[in-house]
Write a protein that binds this DNA or RNA. Structure first.
Lengths: 193, 193
DNA sequence: CACATTTAAGATCAATCGATCTTAAATGTA
DNA sequence: TACATTTAAGATCGATTGATCTTAAATGTG
């Protein structure tokens, strides 16, 4: 009854996400997206509505795919100190192999849009809070297991750790050295002893 | 011999700086700048070259004026723990009165331009390093004066503190609560004990 | 096999961008 | 006072933006 779509929507969204991640929203033109995805202008608009819809879909995909890749380790019932250290190992590794040199897409989006779009702001602040809560849970388990200082102010340290991770994202995007990133991670983990 | 300029260059640059600080480079149009400064298009171009020249002059002014307002306390020969705490008090106060709700202009610039402009990248990384060094000097004095833990890994903590400050900038721009900012500051200072 | 529908491709739209150019007023010197 | 120069104001430039429209190929049903 109808012609079948020739391109894969998920694959297209993935390519668009990486381009938006690197260049931001305004600096990415629809023509850039057409060239990068190989999908014609009309194809993108029929699948995602408009440029803004495509960007928001890309940010949502980033949360599900990349943020989960970085912090998903914390989403187990008994995640503790080992999982927190694992998160920082992943961050370090993704800086080394280049996948985090463009920073965190949520941090970049927070800076570009500030508070000008409600849906994006909710996505950003919601995911920041989610990270903070996951760190807080893991720290609580770590305290109970005797793996960290027993007088640790858990919630406060969780908030502070999340903030450090956002700061690292800025430094990565600014092109800071791997050695500096390693120092920050060391200092962050030493707080726990 | 020649007609005198009718507008004040410094005052104009100050207005442009605040607009760029809030909206970033690409989202600020030359027409916005004309409206905001009250100076005609041709006046801006004769005084600053082009939009890029005006932006870079604004970033340089930010470094001299705002960054100095925040971190200048550290630029005394015997700055120590009290001065470090003072820096965080200033950051907190500037968040409360709204002056830091748009984040740090250098962080915003780092995110928007990534590494695409050499002069801006040098300004950003240079000022990041300057902050790190100032914190490091003050921490060294604080250790010598017995105001902080004597086994403090000074350089590493200085790098980590600077990273936290960049993370706070992102959170401010994203519209985080004052209470959260206070928690991060508390956790940062508690590391020193 | 015909037909209604949806697709892909790209021409084209008005709007906006940064930048330049034109014009005329203001200035100080000769 | 007359003139060369620099200013301010704004019209206008080509380029680029996101979005729409036109056209024709592809598809599956009746």
């Amino acid at each position: 009854m109808t012609r079948t779509r020739e391109f894969d929507v998920n694959e297209t969204l993935d390519k668009a996400m990486h381009l938006f991640w690197e260049k931001g929203y305004v600096e990415t033109s629809v023509r850039d997206l057409v060239k990068c995805t190989g999908v014609a202008h009309a194809g993108l608009y029929s699948a995602f509505g408009d440029k803004e819809g495509l960007f928001k879909a890309a940010v949502r995909k980033y949360c599900l795919k990349i943020a989960d890749e970085m912090f998903g380790v914390l989403d187990h019932d008994n995640a503790g100190r080992a999982e927190i250290e694992h998160v920082f190992e992943i961050i370090l590794q993704m800086n080394k192999d280049g996948r985090l040199r463009k920073g965190c897409m949520l941090v970049n989006t927070a800076v570009e849009f500030s508070g000008t779009d409600e849906e994006l702001n909710n996505l950003v602040l919601g995911n920041f809070k989610k990270l903070e809560n996951a760190l807080s849970r893991a720290l609580t388990h770590a305290v109970a297991a005797g793996k960290v200082r027993n007088d640790l102010p858990v919630k406060r340290i969780a908030t502070s750790m999340a903030t450090t991770i956002h700061g690292l994202s800025v430094l990565s995007r600014a092109g800071i050295s791997i050695a500096t990133i390693e120092q920050v991670i060391l200092a962050t983990l030493e707080q726990l002893d």
